[in-house]
Amino acid sequence: MTSRKEHAMPKRVIVVGAGIIGASIAWNLAKRGAKVTVVDSGEPGGVATRSSWAWINASWGNPEPYFRLRMRSIAEWRQIESEVPGLAVNWCGGLIWDTPPADLDAYAAERAAWGHPIRRVNRDEILALEPTLREVPDHAYHVAGEGMLEPLAATQALLAAAQRLGAGILGNTPIKWLEEKDEGCTGVMTNDGVIHADEIVVAAGAETAALLDGVGITLKMSAPVGLLAHSKPAPKLLNGLVMTPGLHIRQTAEGRIVAGTDFAGADPEGKADELAADLQAKVEAMVRGAEGIGLDFHTVGYRPTPTDGFSAVGRPRGRAGLYVAVTHSGVTLAPAIGRFAAEEILDCRRDPLLTPYHPDRPALT
């Protein structure tokens, strides 16, 4: 006998936002058999995603629950690599000494107690890992399990994988508002009319708060700005990510050294050209062999961030057919958020790791 489940129609889901979070959610939903349409106001690939430093990590001042979520997502990245063609993560590891030594040691001890594979390295070990660095401290910390990727290429690979599973991708399609009926969301209004669905996932980065406000839902967010300098392509000079006081650097697959004052980049405050030139000068002073490679361009990105600094993922209470996914650790957290969102949307099962990060928590409403 054929079961009722086998007769059920695939759930229709619209994912608003084609950055790395929306792409991961779309791919996970399509893999589970949902009928998915991704809609973005610009070119698929997102806005914040394109300007990310693209560090996959579980580091930096987070409480233990967020650390656990990030570690789970790193594991999910390794799984996704085996399933999505063209999704190349460089598991290069990261060197860290960008805080005073006593603070750095305390941070490392805390993370080690949580099971983080962080290792103290001396000066000789630092230079063995990164032999082109001119000035290094007496000791730093190294995390071999961290990595980086090219954010736009990774997002496009996820979207292409979703398309191969039947998902539709609509770029340059602004959303005017979310359609409502009987206190539930039923679709999105575009310039070409309404697209209806059983579920609307808002993963629209900095545009998320305005779309939710249109249906009477408050989500307090900020969008800090950050500038990154991108050098002209150079021969291989760096093996991994390097985080020093006032300068974080990595080298892309095409040879560009990407630099920021920290991993998110500094607020250019109207002086973007000057700040980018200063960052490039610091790179060339720090990295042997980088002299004279020159600055190619800089990017200025706006990082969509719930006001308490943590992810907002889940169904706003009292609003059927609506799901929210917004975070500033998009590159790290995309795989876990994509998987957990698909499970909650299709199975009504919320992963315990998302418990602290409901969009209705008091800090955000």
Rank of each mutant, 00 (worst) to 15 (best):
E83W: 05
P224E: 07
A26V: 05
T132D: 07
A48N: 03
K176F: 13
P235S: 11
L104G: 00
G184E: 09
P235D: 09
D347W: 08
E146K: 05
D40V: 12
I21K: 01
P352Q: 08
G226P: 02
G193W: 14
R120I: 06
M148H: 11
I293F: 07
E130M: 07
H298S: 03
V47G: 05
E207M: 09
S52W: 00
F340V: 07
T218P: 01
A54H: 02
G187F: 13
W77I: 08
H358V: 13
T252M: 12
G145I: 12
E284M: 08
D347S: 10
W177P: 05
V215S: 11
A34E: 04
D273R: 15
Q79H: 09
R119I: 15
A203D: 06
T173A: 14
P117A: 11
G187D: 11
A144F: 08
R120H: 12
P316V: 11
W114A: 02
N90M: 15
R120S: 10
M243E: 07
T218E: 14
K282G: 11
A336M: 09
E130A: 08
S231I: 03
N62E: 05
A30H: 04
E64T: 05
A281R: 07
T307Q: 04
A336T: 05
Q156A: 10
P100R: 05
G166W: 09
G115Q: 14
Q280H: 07
D124E: 14
I249N: 00
R123H: 12
G61Q: 05
K271G: 15
P174F: 12
A157V: 02
G289C: 09
S311L: 07
S82G: 10
H230V: 14
L127N: 08
A210T: 09
M286D: 00
D347V: 08
G226W: 00
C348G: 12
E343H: 13
E179R: 12
L354N: 04
G86K: 09
I74F: 06
E81D: 08
A157M: 12
P85G: 10
G265M: 00
G289V: 12
G115V: 14
T186A: 10
T155S: 09
T155W: 08
T99P: 01
G330W: 02
G321S: 11
P316M: 09
L158F: 09
